[in-house]
């Protein structure tokens, strides 16, 4: 009986040792997660690289490349009576090119934020392009981690000492013969600090404890080149390739920002 009592005491003592001496389980998930997808369309039509679309002036167009940086993304959450702005991401690279046979892989165009406070998210804001502090970096900077989007040397232009904020390339029927020819290309590479665009969008999604919410930002490619009234923002035919004309760079950046909306 004496030995049994002692064993019981020792058993409890051992339990205490084990509970402190062995590796602890990770803390349970705090808050909820958000997958914010960027999804390209052309006036509501699903986007595929190489597929022909029609501009408001009747000109046929197809795209071969569309990508851009998004920086400083944040969201406003109403949690009871208190509102709070939550940072979502410092910088992301959105590759919306996809292919002619497959839609864009969501992993290539997504802000993935974890452990967000639960609540109703009523607005979203981000910079299309790079904020000036981020644009002061270069792909060679030693403080950039291996997976940092700013390591992308294909999107840094030495002449500007700036990243290329956005690349939009494709073909259009510039000569109006009804056919898109190989020599009818356009290349728009935009960048330089001052031309980034702040995008503010009203949103209506909730984040729930230990759940992942998916929300979508629509990117209407038509809006890059034509306004809501169907007026061409600049003379594409005579400005088919731009990476130095700051007027056109600003126009395309503003048009792209206007073409971004929250999708249901």
């Amino acid at each position: 009986m004496y030995a049994m009592k002692n064993s019981l005491i020792l058993f409890l003592f051992g339990l205490i040792i084990i509970s402190y001496g062995c590796p602890q389980e990770p803390d349970p998930l705090l808050g909820g997660n958000l997958e914010l997808l960027f999804e390209t369309d052309f006036d509501g039509e699903q986007f595929f690289t190489g597929q022909e679309y029609t501009f408001p002036n009747g000109r046929k167009v197809k795209f071969s490349k569309i990508d851009f940086f998004v920086s400083g993304a944040s969201a406003r959450v109403d949690n009871g009576n208190v509102g709070e702005t939550v940072d979502l991401s410092e910088v992301e690279f959105m590759d919306l090119t996809g292919s002619a046979i497959n839609p864009v892989d969501p992993q290539d165009a997504m802000i993935n934020s974890i452990n967000l406070p639960s609540g109703d998210y009523t607005s979203l804001s981000f910079t299309l392009g790079l904020t000036s502090d981020l644009n002061a970096k270069t792909p060679n900077d030693s403080d950039l981690g291996t997976e940092n989007p700013l390591k992308r040397s294909s999107h840094y232009w030495t002449d500007w000492t700036s990243y290329i904020f956005m690349k939009v390339e494709g073909n259009a029927d510039f000569n109006g013969d009804g056919m898109i020819q190989g020599d009818e290309t356009f290349v728009y590479h935009t960048g330089q600090s001052g031309f980034e665009q702040l995008v503010n969008l009203s949103s209506d999604f909730g984040i729930f404890e230990e759940q992942t919410t998916t929300a979508k930002v629509g990117v209407n490619l038509r809006s890059f080149f034509f306004d809501d009234a169907g007026v061409e923002r600049f003379d594409m035919n005579n400005l088919r390739s731009v990476h130095t004309d700051i007027t056109v760079i600003e126009t395309i950046m503003k048009g792209a920002a206007e073409g971004m909306t929250m999708k249901n």
Partner: peptide
């Protein structure tokens, strides 16, 4: 002593089972 022997036995047995 039995007390000490039991202590050692239970203590090491539990550490072995729990942490292996």
């Amino acid at each position: 002593k039995p007390y000490f022997r039991n202590f050692l036995f239970v203590f090491f047995a539990m550490l072995f089972v729990a942490c292996e």
